[in-house]
Design a protein around this nucleic acid. Structure first.
Lengths: 112, 112
DNA sequence: AACATACGCAACCTAAAAGTTGCTTATTGT
DNA sequence: ACAATAAGCAACTTTTAGGTTGCGTATGTT
């Protein structure tokens, strides 16, 4: 329940970035972006690593809310959730706007 | 010069995410966003870690192009570069739009 | 000249991430 | 019933990230 201090927030944000900070997980997101359900063994195909390794990566993505697991029969199906991605977009927008504001203030300072 | 295969691209992108995937580096970016030059020792203040640790984090940020180092006298001054951030924004936009497109196709499929 | 400040370099430690191997369980197909 | 497929669990190894300590060097200050 992530009790909301500023340090907590920045840590959550960092965890989200970190979840995407791995080539394997990034390619998993790319595969899942078609909005379909994908099983673990399907996602493990064409990867030069074991199924268990892929499972771990999927768990990392799940822990930050980027994917959801649905058990169906003997399969574990994963689907993407874009809400965290939108959160990241907002974060980057804030940084960018903050930067623009600083630039403006710098300009005003120089011209005064 | 990062010879541009698809694997290379996804790795670069992952490195960029990974660079932001640490609370310390995220707070460094927050400090640098004021568009001013900041020395290492200044950036090390109020942090419960050594100057050398901060230096390492700055190097990570520098390696992905998020900051630039300028040597001035005995000081090493860092400034932010937002180009990589914009690249990340573009990346997230692409993912989001891809997701929307998939949703549309799914809707069309269901309705046909 | 003497001292303090700012930093670089390199070796080292430790904890966590990434990945493997081996085994077990549950589900599906024949 | 039997074989094959899909996945979970746990122990283990290896690599890397994050951080410290110690020392040297350059620049600034008095």
């Amino acid at each position: 329940m992530t009790h909301s201090t500023a340090a907590r927030k920045i840590k959550d944000q960092a965890n989200l970035f970190a979840a995407l900070g791995d080539p394997t997980r990034l390619s998993l997101v790319a595969k899942l972006i078609d909005n379909q359900l994908h099983s673990i063994s399907e996602l493990s195909n064409n990867k030069e690593m074991t199924r268990q390794a892929v499972t771990k990566h999927l768990t990392v993505l799940e822990n930050v809310g980027l994917v959801t697991k649905i058990k169906e029969g003997r399969e574990s199906l994963y689907m993407i959730d874009t809400a965290p991605l939108k959160s990241l977009q907002d974060y980057l927008d804030i940084i960018a706007s903050q930067w623009d504001k600083s630039l403006l203030q710098l300009k005003l300072f120089i011209e005064e």
